[in-house]
């Protein structure tokens, strides 16, 4: 009972208007201090309560580093050089180690790409899932063990009592990801960060895991930051989509708008790729070139080297000389492109 009450209290602490997680002007650099190269430059992202936000982009665009920044779990070589991260009104970048441990697992749960590698091979999975419960809810070994079995049942692991006593080698990728989800949900977090949760899984298992994530979010009224390189997979689930390119958001807006009317040429290419569109010659449409990292960029639009619009249109000069701002195109739909003009009704407002 006390758990439920404290949860209820927790959820009303912040003013309703304030986003649960707010990342502002985030800069992350990798490398030895002094010679560090920027990989995220001026990243902005907001997640409201009970909202599902998909963060999409090619590998190397900075999605995972953005996620790890939110709980300050960046690898040793990476460092936040500038920006603000607020979670439920609290400044995450100002938190000490104790406060961060109280944030991780407790208020922000995380799951990752390679579920099997995320489990300690020498430790029974039940004991690993129980860690958050014992740590954040102060449950005894027995109570935590019983709760783990319940959680396993909730996330669809068959024979939960027996499986809790198994070691990670006995789990397939899909089952291991269910274990990770059980662990991430165990302390009833307000936000779940799922970093490419289905990338390493079979297609059929992918769908199951995504459905499970969706169900759990709706049931628990939990926010979800869903990170993926595949726009098609996540957009169906998400309320809002943010597309990242070379360390910045280049388009964001309601999921339906992004999918049906993408404004940025990069997003448009992503949509086409995910729909497996074919060109006039019957070949699959592919985006030419490869993603650049933030460090390779000096000036101009980050996407300009691969952009068909920049190559053909009169915008060419702008595209090469300075980077466009994230401009409103319709309601909350924004894109970072010189070719994007605000919709007429928006302009009048």
């Amino acid at each position: 009972m006390s758990v439920v009450v404290s949860l209820a209290e927790r959820r009303v602490t912040a003013a309703p208007a304030e986003p649960l997680l707010a990342i502002e002007d985030l800069h992350v650099a990798i490398g030895p201090s002094g010679r560090a190269a920027p990989v995220i430059e001026g990243m902005n992202l907001e997640i409201r309560r009970s909202e599902i936000v998909a963060l999409v982009g090619e590998s190397g665009s900075g999605k995972s580093l953005t996620a790890l920044s939110a709980t300050r779990l960046l690898p040793r070589a990476a460092e936040i050089t500038r920006g603000r991260i607020r979670f439920d009104g609290e400044d995450v970048l100002a938190m000490g180690p104790r406060a961060l441990d109280g944030l991780r697992g407790n208020r922000i749960g995380m799951i990752f790409q390679q579920p099997q590698a995320m489990l300690d091979p020498t430790c029974r999975v039940g004991d690993q899932v129980a860690e958050s419960l014992r740590l954040h809810r102060g449950l005894s070994r027995e109570a935590a063990g019983a709760r783990v079995v319940e959680l396993f049942r909730e996330v669809g692991i068959p024979a939960p009592e027996a499986r809790a006593r198994d070691f990670p080698y006995a789990f397939s990728g899909g089952m291991a990801q269910r274990v990770m989800i059980a662990a991430a949900l165990s302390a009833d977090p307000d936000l779940l960060i799922a970093d490419e949760p289905t990338t390493a899984l079979d297609v059929t298992v992918q769908a199951q895991i995504l459905r499970l994530l969706h169900e759990q979010c709706r049931q628990r009224r939990m926010s979800l930051l869903l990170i993926s390189h595949d726009l098609g997979i996540v957009a169906a689930l998400a309320d809002r989509v943010a597309v990242m390119y070379a360390g910045r958001v280049i388009e964001e807006g309601p999921a339906r708008a992004i999918l049906s009317a993408p404004r940025h040429p990069y997003t448009r290419a992503l949509v086409e790729c995910s729909l497996l569109k074919r060109d006039a010659g019957g070949r699959l449409v592919a985006l030419p070139g490869s993603a650049i990292s933030a460090r390779e960029l000096s000036h101009g639009c980050r996407f300009q080297p691969r952009c068909a619009i920049a190559a053909q249109s009169a915008h060419n000069h702008d595209c090469c000389s300075s980077e466009p701002a994230l401009a409103c195109c319709h309601g909350s739909h924004k894109a970072r492109c010189w070719a994007v003009k605000p919709e007429p009704e928006e302009a009048q407002q």
Binding site: T71, L73, P97, R98, D101, G102, L103, R104, G105, N106, G109, M110, F112, M118, L119, D120, Q128, E131, S132, L135, H136, M180, A183, A184, A187
Partner: peptide, 9 residues
């Protein structure tokens, strides 16, 4: 990293 993400010091 996973253990740290669960809040273990």
């Amino acid at each position: 990293t996973a253990a740290r993400s669960r809040g273990l010091g």
